[in-house]
Amino acid sequence: MKEIRRVGMADLAVASSPMKLVTIGLGSCVGVALYDQRAKVGGLAHIMLPKSNGPFVSNPAKFADTALPLLVTKMQECGAVHRRLTAKLAGGAQMFRLDRPTETMRIGERNAVAILQWLENARIPVLAKDTGGNWGRTVELDTGTGEFLVRTIARGEKIL
């Protein structure tokens, strides 16, 4: 039986085959899955904001710039190797459209940009992404296969 581990908002987790990692109800938040195909070790982060402000971060899993390095470190502790890591991501929607767009309105897009930039600097290739739009997503990483399932309410589901 495949066990499922739930990753909450502004949270991250690492697991190995045959576990599945799930995070539910991504709007402007982005779900980032890192995977080492050889070690069959996967990590999933539910990232809320692009950048931490200042050195005192109460919850590093909340921000792209602090969550991703932490996720990589935790995966290495479980036997993953940095240069073998690949990434898939989904989320970063803009749920509301107001007449007067604010910085927070575009938070989803900013999250995705910050994450892609970090992955590029870390030389982790992005195999697939499903970001933007104005709908919510639930994602599930199968650490046995690396398959990344994206589920929506009105737009069906797909495997990345």
């Binding site: 908002m9 539910i24 109800g25 991504l26 709007g27 938040c29 809320m48 749920m95 938070i107 919510g136």
Partner: peptide, 16 residues
Amino acid sequence: AMAVDMAGAVLDYVLA
């Protein structure tokens, strides 16, 4: 403005 979707997704904006 209005959105109908998963609770988590609708709340994101406020929580962010």
